[in-house]
Design a protein around this nucleic acid. Structure first.
Lengths: 194, 194
DNA sequence: TGACAAAAAATGAATGTTCATTCTTTTTTA
DNA sequence: TAAAAAAGAATGAACATTCATTTTTTGTCA
């Protein structure tokens, strides 16, 4: 197993370097040579693990996205009430975006630019299904507004990305209090007002 | 004035080409030669109007941002009630994002990547002041939740960018009905619940 | 166990291309 | 006709990818 172990370490180092460099400079301003240097590897070695630069970024995206959704739904279970389930998932997502800031920033950049193949993007979206199902249930129970998934996502989840980017720029600090306020805003935007 | 007129046309053509190409390919995948070709100009001519590529993009950003905020606040006046003022501004912004889709996409891309100088970004933010003032007034009157401006922006305005990008990708069509629903979500996320 | 050859992995240097920017010449304007 | 504007071609740097070698690993047999 020694060989395989070693390979995985290098691959991980490459993925990690890609995330860090793309976060700070963007896709096209990140040369393969720098990725190689940061991963302590020769540029040529990258091509043993990835087809080319596009493939490296696509694979990185898919991996990080999978990590993200795994974390988001890890403690969720479908027997929960809609409101409790939503709060749980929302707070896990918020948690991820604050703790795994680098990873989350990378996803945000991928989601907002033409950096990723459409195919890889589609793959990344699939994992959100449990949240979409929760919303469907909430609509049936009359707890959640009867809105399109895109609208629900835009108001309930997407603002977290904006807050994370703003925080990264240093303009603003997202602490415990703000987080609870943000949650309340998210919930009020999608719940049915009694 | 003939000379100046001609110059302004060329400058505008360059700015327009920049927006279109950067929208579709991103900053670094947009060569000066293509911008020149799309504007029917020699590459060398760009340097008569702009210092370099970074300057071209910075100036384009600042111009589009100014256009955007001008449109947003054109019909607003400070004597309006908080709720009416917010609805008006929100709908103007939504309108801009749908009608001037190219311009709005360009701003979204600039706001989400390290493509623009920090200085130019700061310049762009200033113009939002009337909205921030409206929110301050709303908080004083107990109509708007006592949240940080960043939180208010994240829930009241930013979701429109997400919806615009999603629409551009073709996954979803933002029609009149959706727009009204989106407005209601925005307003419920920031208003004080009675 | 240890030595060694075949295979795999890794490397640094080369290759060819793309691109921002500049230079020299031509065209347009006044 | 002098000055300004524009052009196309040239320059040099940066980069993704490949190539020819070197290093490391693996499996085999004494």
């Amino acid at each position: 197993m020694a060989k395989l172990q070693k390979s995985i370490d290098k691959r991980n180092a490459l993925v990690k370097a890609t995330i860090e460099l793309v976060n700070n400079n963007g896709f096209h301003a990140t040369p393969m040579s720098k990725i190689a240097k940061m991963a302590n590897v020769s540029p040529a070695t990258i091509y043993l693990y990835f087809e080319n630069k596009q493939d490296l970024v696509n694979q990185t995206y898919i991996e990080v996205k999978a990590e993200y959704t795994k974390y988001a739904f890890e403690t969720y279970d479908e027997s929960m009430s809609v409101e409790a389930g939503f709060e749980l998932i929302w707070k896990r997502i918020a948690d991820f975006k604050l703790k795994e800031c680098e990873n989350a920033m990378f996803l945000a950049q991928c989601d907002n630019t033409p950096m990723i193949d459409e195919l890889s993007r589609q793959q990344g979206i699939k994992h959100l299904q449990p949240l979409l199902d929760l919303w469907t249930r909430g609509k049936e129970e009359g707890i959640i507004k009867p809105l399109s998934e895109y609208l629900l996502y835009a108001y309930a989840i997407n603002p977290l990305s904006f807050l994370m980017i703003t925080q990264k720029r240093g303009a603003f600090q997202l602490d415990k209090t703000h987080l609870e306020e943000a949650y309340q805003s998210a919930w009020s935007s999608i719940k049915v007002c009694k």
